[in-house]
């Protein structure tokens, strides 16, 4: 008993382990995510696999080498010494290495490629890139900053009120370990930046322009905050 109490206290003081949004979903949605035949995200993974072959990604990478990649993104881009996310990396491979035109980051082909790559890391623990300390700190400050006409910070919902009900929605802890993911509300696969835009617009704040460094900073903080969770891509969410 004493030991239990001590363990509980330790967990409290160290900060409880992060809980994926998966944990607070209905059993029906959990079953949908778990079952590859029912998970709509898997259709995009299949599209991504076809694109991988068609676009010639395989001429530089073996699929097996993609295992673990999504678990450590965002990462430091050696050439530019800036943090980039997985979508940025895929874009860079296409444009700089293959000389192909840019893919719109939120359009189906990019989402499918990202889902295919992220899926290779499914079940692997997140391993946030330690070199991103600066971006992580900037992201944490953005996470704690009250913003918008409703004057709410990410932390006020996702740290202080996770598990409670915002109207009909259970507020998740706001972990980013399942992206890109299938949202029933979107009726499709969506990127993490789309999710962040939605939360920012929800408090009547001005979203950053697409690809802004603030998103990557937030992503770097979210990755560190979710340490201990595993990659779920493609997750399913309400």
């Amino acid at each position: 008993m004493r030991q239990l109490a001590a363990a509980a206290l330790a967990a409290l003081t160290l900060g409880a382990a992060p809980r994926s949004g998966f944990e607070t979903m209905t059993p029906e949605l959990q079953a949908m995510q778990r079952d590859d035949l029912a998970n709509p995200g898997m259709l995009y993974v299949a599209d991504g696999e076809a694109l991988w072959a068609q676009e010639g990604c395989g001429s530089c990478h073996a699929v097996a080498a993609m295992r673990g990649v999504a678990a450590r993104y965002p990462a430091l881009d050696a050439a530019s010494q800036t943090p980039i996310d997985l979508t940025d990396r895929i874009a860079q491979c296409r444009e700089a290495r293959q000389g192909k035109p840019a893919l719109p980051p939120e359009a189906a082909p990019m989402l499918a490629l990202a889902a295919f790559v992220a899926h290779q890391s499914r079940g692997m623990p997140l391993q946030p890139d330690a070199q991103l300390e600066g971006a992580r700190r900037q992201g944490e400050a953005l996470f704690r900053e009250r913003r918008g006409q409703l004057n709410l910070s990410c932390a006020q919902c996702h740290d202080d009120n996770a598990g409670r009900k915002l109207a009909g929605s259970t507020i998740p802890e706001g972990h980013a370990n399942g992206y890109p993911l299938y949202r029933l509300e979107w009726q499709g696969l969506g990127s993490l930046q789309r999710r962040l835009r939605n939360c920012i617009a929800g408090v009547r704040s001005e979203p950053y322009p697409p690809g802004a460094p603030e998103y990557v900073a937030l992503e770097a903080y979210l990755a560190a905050r979710a340490r201990g969770l595993v990659v779920e891509s493609p997750a399913v969410r309400p």
Binding site: E145, R146, R147, G148, Q149, N151, A201, R204, S205, E206, P207
Partner: peptide
Amino acid sequence: GLVRVGRAWQGR
């Protein structure tokens, strides 16, 4: 004290 208010909501 409001910060980064969305364009549609500014000054309201």
